[in-house]
Write a protein that binds this DNA or RNA. Structure first.
Length: 512
RNA sequence: GGCGGUGUAGCUCAGCUGGUUAGAGCACGGCACUCAUAAUGCCGGGGUCGGCGGUUCAAGUCCGCCCGCCGCUACCA
């Protein structure tokens, strides 16, 4: 029996009420890069994404369009598959909460919680906003012209309905102990503090069923109820691994290594989810990472402002890999960040085209012109060479360490430090001058540059799979040698290199 | 209000357990080079490290107070 290392990472399942926007693309992108990196390190990876398709809002949206809910969600869910496709995400599965296996998993989890005495029937009442599909506390309600309104501006009405409850209040102490024993469970640290302080302030039992609409997973044994959307949604992470059948091959991936989420849904993942799992006697995930939001040219993004960013439009204009690069390079993952044309163009032109692309172009052109397009032989590095080669050799460990903390920006910064070093080094070595004085040394310099470029392209492969693939083509690195471990094996001397061509096209600002 | 975080060059930020002239990238100025996508490299200007007070031989780096900004404060994804 081999003990292969497994790595399970997820995005949230996206609510089909909305069409895909930059936020969806961002979360999945982060997960994709980490998934690709872990595969490259040789781990067995399972990367899950999907769509959340139940709830009153979906039911109503379908009704408005005169469609059956299932037909409606079939259509909208497709947009998220297309996004994954266009963004070149390497997800191993795409789950939908309307799948039969998922309903079965939810029912199984429910029964398990019920058997363990974690669920009871009570009733829920309060000010309810249909539009928001949410209850509000009395202190949040405002009144205008006899009508009461939620803080969101949605009209509310007093609703009392029977509801099943999960004994969340029993789990506050256990959760605090869990956070204490697993300091890395919630990241970044500032989010962890928020969650802990929230739990410390006390938890009340959680209403986990609704009778006010039908579009959901029926509660086992009481078909008048459907499950509360979060119990339904969170369960997807184990449905995809075969739950409730814990004997499957896939189940070995549980518990998850990282759940990537937006900061708005951290609470559900950092409080409810481990509580549900502990209550059910299931292992808890290792980590939940909450990333931040994007603003658009300094403006908060909102549908009413009409400044929603469409990731597909960005790709069309700037190309996929530059967009992938920008999103993870510009902002520390976990922080909020601003998306601007100027910043994107700056990164694309100076870092991708000038720093990296041009380093490759100038180095490979020299080999093409002065070495008949063949890879020069390896010569033992001298002190000056070692400065560059050691920096490159250290990169995989540095990038891996940063990615283990989901510090994507740090990983890229590390790579760019070495990229800049490459430019500085080639200027110091002046192979174009050596051509006239010392052909042997020139060849050695060019060989070292090739080695450096291969290292750079390899560690960047998860970030920019397509473009770095082209770069490795130009470096004549075989398909099966495009991994970190493969860097240990040098390419044979004399390997023929294709003529280089620019990797990144610069963007010239148009008058718009 | 409560809890948490943050305020360092024009901009975005690094500065771990306190210790030589406070750093990077971008932007700006000068020089060099011309292999390369007019790309690159080198040098430089510029900061009372939010304010006041304290601890210490020594404080962006610890403590207190004040000011500014941000996040969280329950069942919308």
């Amino acid at each position: 029996m081999t003990t292969e290392r497994r790595f399970y990472l997820t995005t949230p399942i996206y609510y089909v009420n909305d069409k895909p926007h930059i936020g969806h693309a961002y979360t999945s992108l982060a997960a994709d890069v980490l998934a690709r990196w872990k595969r490259m390190e040789g781990l067995q990876v399972f990367f899950l994404t999907g769509t959340d398709e139940h709830g009153q809002k979906v039911e109503k949206a379908a009704e408005t369009r005169g469609m059956a809910p299932q037909d409606f969600t079939d259509t909208v869910s497709q947009a998220f598959r297309e996004l994954a496709d266009r963004m070149n995400f390497s997800n191993d599965a795409f789950i939908r909460t309307t799948e039969e296996r998922h309903k079965a998993a939810c029912a199984a989890l429910w029964k398990r919680l019920e058997e363990r005495g974690e669920i009871y029937l009570g009733h829920y009442e309060g000010w309810y906003a249909v539009r928001d599909e949410a209850f509000y506390g009395p202190d949040e309600i405002t009144e205008k012209n006899g009508q009461k309104f939620a803080p969101t501006g949605a009209p509310v009405e007093w609703v009392r309905e029977p509801s099943y409850f999960f004994r969340l209040s029993n789990w506050a102490e256990r959760l605090l102990a869990f956070y204490d024993e697993n300091p890395d469970f919630i990241a970044p640290a500032t989010r962890r503090n928020e969650v802990i302080s929230f739990v410390k302030s006390g938890l009340t039992d959680l209403s986990i069923s609704r009778t006010s609409f039908k579009w959901g997973v029926p509660v086992p044994g009481d078909e008048a109820h459907v499950m509360y959307v979060w119990l339904d949604a969170l369960t997807n992470y184990i449905t995809a691994l075969g739950y409730p059948d814990e004997a499957t091959e896939a189940w070995k991936f549980w518990p998850a290594d990282v759940h990537f989420v937006g900061k708005d849904i951290l609470r559900f993942h950092a409080i409810y989810w481990p509580a549900f799992l502990m209550a059910a006697g299931l292992p808890t995930p290792a980590r939940v990472f909450a990333h931040g939001w994007w603003t658009n040219e300094g403006q908060k993004i909102s549908k009413s402002l009409g400044n929603v960013i469409d990731p597909l439009a960005l790709i069309d204009e700037f190309g996929l890999d530059p967009v992938r690069f920008f999103l993870l390079r510009e902002v520390p993952f976990g922080n909020d960040g601003d998306f601007s044309r100027r910043a994107l163009m700056g990164r694309l032109n100076s870092e991708l085209a000038n720093d990296l692309g041009n380093l490759a172009q100038r180095s490979l052109s020299l080999i093409q012109k002065n070495c008949e397009g063949r890879l020069p032989g390896v010569v033992k590095p001298d002190a000056a060479d070692a400065e560059l080669l050691d920096a490159v050799a250290a990169l995989p460990a540095q990038v891996g360490e940063a990615l283990d903390r989901q510090a994507f920006h740090e990983a890229l910064e590390r790579v760019w430090v070495v990229t800049r070093l490459g430019n500085s080094w080639i200027d110091a070595q002046k192979p174009w001058s050596l051509k006239k004085t010392d052909l042997e040394r020139m060849a050695t310099v060019l060989r070292h540059l090739h080695t450096a470029l291969r290292g750079l392209a390899t560690v960047l492969l998860p970030f920019m799979p397509e473009t770095m693939g082209r770069m490795l083509d130009q470096l004549a690195v075989p398909e099966d040698a495009r991994t970190v471990p493969a860097l240990a094996t040098l390419l044979p001397d004399g390997t023929e290199l294709p003529p280089p061509s620019p990797l990144f096209q610069k963007i010239v600002d148009e008058p718009a």
